[in-house]
Every structure is written in C-alpha cells, then in structure tokens.
Amino acid sequence: MPEVTMIEAIRQAMDEELARDPRVFIVGEDVGPRGGVFRATQGLFEKYGEQRIVDSPLAELSIVAVGIGSALADLRPICEIQFADYIFPAFNQIVNEAAKLYYRSNGAWCVPMVIRAPYGGGIGGGLYHSQSVEAFFAHVPGLKVVIPSTPHDAKGLLKSAVRDLNPVIMFEPKKGYRAIKGEIPDGEYTVPIGPARIARAGRDVSVFAYGMMAHYAAQAAELVAQEGIDVELVDLRTLLPVDHASILASVKKTGKALIVHEDTRTLGYAAEVAAILADEAFEHLDAPVRRLTGLDVPGVPFSHPMQDLFMPSVEKIADAIRELAGY
C-alpha cells in the first residue's frame, strides 16, 4: 500500500470521481490552472478542462448556490470554499436551501453536492484562516458533515460524499494536508459516511476526536501507553449523522470519556457527545465527562504564544487523559 499525504489523497479522490462520472465537476476560487491555494486540484484542469474544473468569481454564496442548482439538475458538484472561515456568505444557501430542499419538496428534489473546506488552526493563520466551524453545520438536519484525520479516510469519505444524494460538507484539517501521511489501498475503495472508527482499542479511557485532534490524540495515546494507561481512541470522522452506537459502546467499555476539538467550547460538538453520554450512558460512567477544546474567544489569535494557548496539543491531551485515568 502506497503512503500519501492527506492533500494527495483528496486530489486522488476527486480525480477518480471525475473520471468515473461525467456529471462530477469542481467549482471554486483558484481551482483551475492554479490548482487551488492548497493544491488540492493540481493537474485536474489540464486533465478535465475548464468546463469541469470551474474557476468561480470570488463569491462564496454563489459557489454553493450554483452547486445547489446544478445538483438539482442532476450534476454532481464539488464546491471548494477556500477556507472554512469564508463559508458564512453561503450559510443561508446551505442551511435554508441545501439542507431543506429534499424535506420541503416531499422527497422530490434532492441535492447531491459536496462542499469541501479546509479548517483549523495552529498554522499562524490568525482569526480568518484558522476557524473550526463544524458545529454550525452539524446542528442542521439534512446536511451530512465529515472530517477525516487520515489520508485513507479523506479519500474514502470524499468518494462516498460525491456519490451521496445529500449535501455533504467535508471539513479538511489544513494543518494535516502535508503533515499527515498514511497508507491507502491500491485501487478503488470508499469509506462509508456514518460510522466512527476505532483508531485504537483500549480499556481505561475513551477519547473522542476528529480531524487534526484525532491525529494528536493518537500521539497522546502512545505517550500515556508508556505510563500504563490504555486509551481507546474513537475517531468520530462523521459528525452528522451522529454515530450514537460507537460513542456509547466505547464508554460502556471504559467508563471514562474525554472529547477533544479545537473549535470553541460552548455549544461545540463535544457538548453533544457529553449530552449523549449523560442521557444514555450515565450508569456506565466512572468519572465526569471531560472536554478539551479551543478557548471561548472570538477567534484563534495570530501571535504564537496566544495561538498556542488557544490550541489543544498532544501534551494537553495527554494531561487530560492522565487526569481522567487517575480519577
């Protein structure tokens, strides 16, 4: 099995889906000859041409809305939002339109579209190149939200997303685009949207994470393993629909739960996981449910000392695991 970077896995997924289905096209800012600002679409313009690799005007609302309209006409758009921070002009189109069209048309009109957006901090990007915005969208029935932490899942989930008949948003951990490498199978495979992945089986503490934080949590689990703490790492990877079964099964085994994300704390995704555990696993818990998250401040600050304080890290995750294990 070849080892590739996450960005290469994403590029491969799009290349293969473009080759498989002539209805698939890519639309976004700088996705054409430039190959995308992160190079996710590098080489695709040369291969598939300007009708299928569409450089859009600089206007996120219409990148998404044109995607919606084309999906209604049975195309399969992959809309790229250059940074998740800039998705908000399209918020109305995503929440009021894409998410509701199937429901409000009594199942007549579906919206088979994908929105890709790089998210996350720790890259010196300041307030407007660092945001984690998943909670806004994971709150919206009708959408599907996925966040991979490995090249394997990035490729497999994106291929599933392109084939899904619903609007799927994939937030991609931009810090991991080149930093995260991993093996992917030769040839065709997909990863289903929905099920979480047990990244590491363990019996002492359950850690729930996704994206870059799942990558960090795997490293933290290795650190504490040397101290005799056996972590079960659940890479949530699909945030919506919520995989209740995997969340509950893990905590029934370990009795302890830590949820990690870099999004801000209040009403973040961890709050939902904690609520599910409080509702449905109360009698299995041996310790309080803990959250390790970004800080409740309006943005990820630019200067390194402030950014580092904001961001969860391998060490912070390891400390949180140790505290829970000792409870």
Partner: peptide, 13 residues
C-alpha cells in the same frame, strides 16, 4: 442563484 446553477447545468450537459 439556483437558477444560475440550473442554467450552468444545461450548458454543462
């Protein structure tokens, strides 16, 4: 804006 997408799809096809 959906109409723009529908028209884009017509042209695309």
């Amino acid at each position: 804006a959906h109409a723009a997408g529908l028209a884009f799809a017509i042209q695309y096809k």
